[in-house]
Design a protein around this nucleic acid. Structure first.
Lengths: 156, 156, 156, 156
DNA sequence: TTTT
DNA sequence: TTTT
């Protein structure tokens, strides 16, 4: 039963975040992330190989992504693999794999922090590490606890 | 261009390895790995959530997997996400995601190492860490050589 | 400012946990973990190389460790590197590095769960993943949030 | 015996690399890497906590570090923990922990690749991932060969 | 001693 | 579809 399911990615966004506001105050952001490897083939030519990843962020993380990330942004991501399975119109089993983001960090320093300081509350550094908080935000009354969403049972 | 694409899994095999011997001495093994998380839902009930991963191993690794792994084996895996994309019969874009294994380690000590000591050459411990070696070995001669199989340009 | 400091270990305990109960309900456990690599030297002889790690766990994690881990236990650990620096008697700068554990998972299934079922509440599997909760436990009123202690500002 | 000893760091260099050329064509580079976490304390004030890591790179990696890294460079690192233990003048046991780098990637795109294209041979991208190659190259001929430098038995 |  |  012991299980570890961990993904570490570092790459660039292929497009601006797609953010959806759902009922009940929930927010989800979908990102397309490219990770590119370079290697030399047997003839000594450099070859780039790009893998595209579908990332999913929920709650406060989604909002931070909406606010600060855009096409081209470089980020470091920790998450886990999550698959959806369903039957398509032809009755065939289908599977789609995405990365549920647990935390991410903006790199590259090309931040364009909004001009509204309110927006940046508690986030003076654009490259702070954003741990996921469940959404709706739990009323943690403890000191400064960082939450992550790795094990919650919210419906996402 | 900087890219990191890393997966760390720890779980159990849902079936024996499926191994195919290809032309040119190539071997590929496919594994189904389950990683299970346990958490309590809002009612305090324990819930298990299992994610199934398709693993792909090549060359010597595939042979080691064939030899030592079986349904139920517990392993620790490092690898990377690799997707195949194609068009199906209906002309729809399809995508299948799997984990290309870079290294793995057998856990649990329930090894049943073959009775033939030759088989265990260099592997007195069942839980040795098996780093991937490209197969057939690339004719690496320069200093730029990739020393694991993460970046090779072999056709897999 | 972007920072990642992550350690992943899988190994066995060299001794039973050392647990200290501090004032204010705090608990700390210290573990000695061995990670062993096997490789062949240039003569083809198998060589084992063991690295010893000093792990530190706080709060509920420390109690779980006290309860379920013992000399020889095999665990998977995620944590971060933390160093203490000080001056010794001779006025020399000294540094000691340890691993602050964020989460751990018991492996090997050799659990000897206590006979008191209360103790195992919510932990029917010995190999559940134990995320750290800050100590003293925050009064999280949210649903089932998993906390980790990676970013707290408690004095440890 | 199963062992995993893995470190993932992302941070900035506190100083230029220190490179030593040893007898027998060996090269070693030492780096000081800072990883900084930001969090809010219980009063809502942002606090930065910096951990300093001693990195050690060998062979070709050391040369690449010497050539392209400098004080302030942002890098992503994978490696493992390695400790030296010895007795000091007072006969006391001492231990020093460092990170043996397995691979690293330059981030931030502030590369100042030398103007000599020869220098960049096989490395048109400053942020290529540098996997360690043992130096001098081991005469790998069998299938059990370690394909990165994590498990070699070279004298470093 | 870094970085934002 | 990203990035250098």
């Amino acid at each position: 039963m012991a299980g570890v399911n961990k993904v570490i990615l570092l790459g660039n966004l292929g497009a601006d975040p797609e953010v959806k506001y759902l009922e009940g105050d929930n927010v989800v952001a979908n990102l397309r992330l490219a990770t590119t490897e370079s290697y030399k083939d047997r003839n000594g030519n450099r070859v780039d190989q790009t893998e595209w990843h579908d990332l999913e962020l929920w709650g406060p993380q989604a909002k931070i992504a909406e606010q600060y990330l855009k096409k081209g942004s470089q980020i470091y991501v920790e998450g886990k693999i999550k698959s959806d399975t369903w039957q398509d119109d032809q009755g065939q089993n289908r599977k789609r794999t995405k990365i549920r983001v647990i935390s991410f960090t903006m790199l590259g320093g090309k931040s364009e922090m909004g001009s509204n300081p309110q927006e940046n509350a508690g986030m003076s550094q654009p490259s702070t590490n954003y741990k996921a908080a469940a959404s709706p935000a739990p009323s943690t009354s403890g000191p400064d606890i960082q939450m992550d969403d790795s094990d919650d049972d919210l419906p996402f």
